[in-house]
């Protein structure tokens, strides 16, 4: 058990280190001199400061150091939770993240809840009515939202709801989680990983339904509700749990689109602005946080696994 946990932690920890290394190297060799970028006069296109002043600044921020030394310093700062200093906004990245990340987190958590509350029952229902009209309808729905990307579905849905039906205005901006206009972004965001949840639930449910112990439970005369909740829920939830990584990726990717479309000032918004303006400390921070969210999710699943299914560590 200890060996299992240790290998998991090493596996994901080294993975995160690799991602940091690759993205830092890309930015180091690709983004150009950060000091020049910081003090470049946007309108004139000329340097505001003299070259020797720039040199002193480079020294101050340690940008005159070779790559390995800079990367080491970056890691050291990251270890104490310092994400660096934004070139474009000229303030600590931590401050930006502190304000923006919670907004995306709230929407993300709400989307996951929606996914679980809607997705799992739909998957169970489809499996219980295997090959019926209900099943085919649900499977068709999965195929549809799985194929059509979020940036196509959202405008079409908006057009339908706002122009054709006319039941709402275009939701724009962020007015807190409990404001009505956050409903559409949450639903659309949950579409990203909803197919995975429904498909996994349905497949696991079909698999479990044909197990001997279910037949035994039924033969004992248990009610079907009892059979589903007591005997089937656990084996069905394990495969769903496996796809937490995919769900997380769906959320982070989806956040980029919905925050742009609905103009929500969240984490995805920072990422896009930073990439457009080549604000590389912010880009590094977004890649780091994005990867961290997915990897921590994956690792927690790996750690929770043996508790749900003791066969794994054997």
């Amino acid at each position: 058990m200890t060996v299992y946990l240790l290998t998991r932690v090493v596996r994901w920890g080294s993975g995160l280190l690799l991602i940091l290394f690759v993205s830092y190297a890309m930015m180091f060799y690709g983004a150009g001199d950060p000091i020049k970028r910081m003090f470049l006069d946007q309108e004139q296109g000329s340097l505001v400061l003299e070259e020797d002043v720039l040199e002193a600044l480079r020294k101050k921020y340690g940008i005159d150091q070779p790559f390995p030394e800079q990367f080491r310093r970056y890691l050291a700062k990251l270890a104490v939770g310092d994400l660096g200093f934004s070139i474009r906004e000229k303030r600590p990245v931590n401050r930006m993240v502190q304000v923006r990340l919670p907004i995306s987190m709230q929407i993300g958590v709400a989307a996951v809840l929606f996914m679980v509350i809607v997705g799992i029952p739909l998957g169970v229902w489809a499996a219980l009515r295997h090959n019926s009209v209900v099943d085919q309808f649900i499977v068709g729905f999965i195929v549809f939202i799985n194929a059509v990307p979020i940036f196509v579905i959202t405008p079409l849905l908006l057009w339908f709801l706002v122009v054709v039906v006319g039941i709402m205005d275009v939701p724009y901006g962020w007015k807190g989680l409990f404001h009505g206009q956050v409903v559409l972004p949450i639903i659309v965001l949950s579409f990203g990983a909803m197919p995975t949840v429904i498909r996994q639930t349905r497949a696991a449910m079909l698999d479990t339904l044909s197990q001997d112990y279910i037949r035994t439970a039924r033969a004992k005369g248990l009610t079907s509700r009892l059979v589903i909740f007591r005997h089937m829920l656990r084996p069905v939830l394990i495969p769903v749990l496996t796809s937490v990584g995919l769900i997380m990726i769906g959320l982070v990717n989806g956040a980029l689109f919905i925050e742009l479309i609905f103009n929500i000032p969240g984490f995805g918004h920072i990422a896009i602005t930073a990439l457009r303006t080549v604000d590389y400390p912010v880009i590094m921070a977004t890649v780091f946080i994005g990867a961290l969210i997915v990897m921590v999710g994956n690792m927690l699943v790996d750690l929770a696994y043996p508790l749900l299914d003791p066969r794994i560590t054997r």
């Binding site: 993975g15 150009g32 990717n253 990422a271 990439l275 994005g290 997915v294």
Partner: peptide, 17 residues
Amino acid sequence: SVPGLLLAMLMNTALKR
């Protein structure tokens, strides 16, 4: 495990210049 779009955008931005 890295959100793909972020990685693609990073690569694109870093290599352009």
